[in-house]
Simulated assay, not measured.
Amino acid sequence: MTRSEKLTTLEEMVATIPDGASIGLGGSFLHRGPFAFVRELIRQGKRDLEIIKASPGYDIDILCRAGCVSRVRAGIVAMEGNFGLAGGYRKAIESGTVKLEEHACMTLTAGLRAAGAGVPFMPVGGVHGSQIAEVSGWEKMTDPYGGEEEVWLIPAICPDFAVIHAHAVDRDGNARVEGSPHWDRALTRAARKVLVTAETLAPSESFLERPELTLVPGFMTAAAVHAPQGAWPGSLAPIYDVNYDAVARYVEESAGGSIAGHMAAAPEARQEEPA
């Protein structure tokens, strides 16, 4: 594979996602999510998707409102404190349109880590007293080394695709993330294919200067897209903050039954407009 084969367009990247695929989305709530990618899923009319994310919000909400999703594996879901619950997602779950396997953030991450390690399950503590384990059908076992403690066993979670938004990517597909990786390290190690959108396209030499910031090495990346403002209306610290006005407009508009105005206002949509 030559270096140029890693770089593609957002449209071409999303075109590789078949209906019915399972997709793990990076970031957390309104922070560093691959939101331009999510909106392109809607534009291309993808259907019957399974979405996997420990702490989604805007992304799962807009996908549910657009009818793209049939299954979800997620921990906490919310639009963050400013906007409360994700109304479109909640309606989809309550109506039965979308099926949910509910997790705590740490149990979903445990399932991803199991897949990344190539083992069928990962033991966790901290679920005792919750009905999540029983509702989800997880098994438990007693410490096989002589202790009396019981642990829950979370089945491996292996998405078909992991999609993250990074601060920078090079032509080899090396992806650099500044600050918190959120759940992206476990997610990218668990998935069958890793797709990267990135704020900037950086020279490969710059990755040698701070190799510890390379969250995803190029050999793991199937395809990469240069997508400025790709986390809008969320944040990409320290480059830009959450656009709370845009989120507020989305919440109000979508509650009225439409997302067309929000989709048209997205940066990638405006970039497509003729001069």
Rank of each mutant, 00 (worst) to 15 (best):
S258P: 01
F37Q: 02
A265M: 05
A133T: 08
C158S: 15
H182D: 12
A115F: 14
G111L: 09
F207C: 07
I164S: 04
P233W: 15
G57N: 11
D184C: 02
S70Y: 04
G96P: 09
E102L: 13
E273F: 03
G126Y: 09
V135T: 13
A114D: 08
A21G: 04
P211Y: 12
V151Y: 14
W232Q: 06
L85E: 15
E252M: 10
A264W: 09
P228C: 07
A223L: 13
E205M: 12
S180D: 14
G20M: 02
A21N: 08
Q44G: 04
G20Q: 06
T142F: 03
P155W: 14
P120L: 10
R3A: 05
L85M: 14
S22R: 02
S22H: 12
L41D: 00
R210A: 06
T200P: 01
T221K: 02
E50Q: 13
Y244N: 03
P228E: 12
E178K: 10
L108N: 13
E148P: 00
N174A: 00
S130N: 05
V98Y: 10
G257F: 11
H103S: 14
R113N: 12
L236H: 08
A114M: 08
R73P: 05
V169L: 03
V194H: 09
R189S: 06
T107W: 11
A92Y: 13
V69L: 06
K46P: 03
T2P: 01
F161L: 11
C105T: 14
G81T: 10
E134M: 06
A186E: 15
G137N: 05
M122L: 05
P18N: 10
K99L: 07
L30W: 11
F83H: 13
R210G: 05
P233N: 07
T97Y: 07
A265E: 10
E199K: 08
I132C: 03
S95R: 09
V216E: 00
S70G: 14
Q229T: 01
N82I: 05
R171P: 04
A222F: 10
Q271C: 08
G45L: 07
I17M: 00
I42G: 00
A156T: 02
G126A: 07
Y58Q: 11
E94K: 12
V177H: 06
L85R: 13
P123T: 12
A202R: 09
